[in-house]
């Protein structure tokens, strides 16, 4: 048996475990249970193999083998495309769509997680070959900790204050606090909305957050997550019953109008607070040269 076999197998196992650790099917039910997971575990295994094989290749002075990793990069960009396409296709049939920004964020994380797997496998094999299996185990555990840390970014409750606010009508105009949401013409619909709807005001904590939560994709993500977690009082062909988020132009506060099936203020606030802040929505005007802060 070749002296590299054991380290390579170790690297592959470490990388695959890292992928399992990073693969969580939560309330979003994505990746879909079973088949979606099988796809990603298999890809994780391939990624781990690539990472693990790279080290012995370099040790044998086969430097061209590194170009192999570029093949991997192309492969995983393809994974991102695949996820994006699937999610975009499915999105048309969601009662409350995820929105492009959310989809892009999910696709992005699938790609990046495969790179983390390559990296974990590479570290595992490298440490094993250079030092010892114990060093390799420590290295891999560190990688997994880092990957776990990278798995979840910040959530909405860290960037805004969430307050419940009664909905009210001024004529046909629906308002949350002083934020105009939409015009509902029929008194019948208005009653429905007052009965089933809930209003929340999100107050951003600073200028960066005003820009971030103002992003249309971020707002759609909030609506989608709320409708998944709390249910949604609507059907196809009832466009008047669409949850909406509008912005106060004055100070960037958001008026959230939702129609949940579970009408609990506390739960709704929890769910809104737990919505991830989308990477693609984050803006940092405080870092700009003409810094406004």
């Amino acid at each position: 048996m070749n002296e590299y076999i054991v380290p390579i197998v170790f690297g592959i196992i470490a990388g695959t475990i890292a992928r399992i650790v990073m693969l969580r099917t939560d309330y979003r039910q994505y990746p879909t249970y079973l088949h979606g997971r099988v796809i990603h575990l298999s890809l994780g295994f391939i990624a781990a193999s690539l990472g693990a094989v790279a080290v012995p290749a370099i040790m044998e002075m086969e430097f061209t083998a590194v170009t192999f990793l570029t093949v991997a990069a192309t492969q995983f960009r393809e994974v991102r495309n695949m996820e994006r396409n699937t999610l975009t296709e499915i999105d048309e049939f969601e009662l409350v769509p995820r929105g492009k920004t959310y989809i892009e964020g999910i696709a992005l994380s699938f790609e990046s997680r495969n790179y983390l797997v390559i990296f974990t496998a590479l570290i595992g094999t490298l440490f094993y070959l250079v030092w010892h299996i114990y060093a390799a185990i420590v290295g891999v555990l560190l990688c997994m900790l880092i990957s776990r840390g990278l798995r979840s970014g910040s959530t909405i409750k860290e960037v805004v204050d969430i307050k419940y606010h009664e909905l009210h009508f001024e004529g046909a105009g629906l308002y949350v606090d002083n934020i105009y949401i939409m015009n509902i013409g029929l008194p019948e619909r208005q009653e429905e909305i007052l009965k089933y709807g809930m209003g929340f005001i999100l107050t951003p904590k600073n200028m960066n957050e005003i820009n971030t939560v103002g992003n249309l994709g971020q707002r759609q993500a909030i609506l989608h997550d709320v409708s998944v977690s709390l249910g949604i009082f609507r059907d196809s062909g009832t466009p008047a019953l669409s949850p909406l988020i509008k912005r106060d132009l004055d100070d960037g506060r958001l008026g959230v109008f939702i129609l949940p099936q579970v009408r609990s203020k506390e739960k709704a606030m929890q769910v809104i607070g737990a919505v991830p802040v989308l990477e693609n929505a984050i803006r940092m005007p405080s870092e700009s040269k003409g810094g406004i802060l």
Binding site: M182, I184, G185, P239
Partner: peptide
């Protein structure tokens, strides 16, 4: 509103 899947707005 129900037939054409639009929203009835009151002006």
């Amino acid at each position: 509103e129900a037939i054409i899947d639009g929203i009835a707005h009151a002006l």
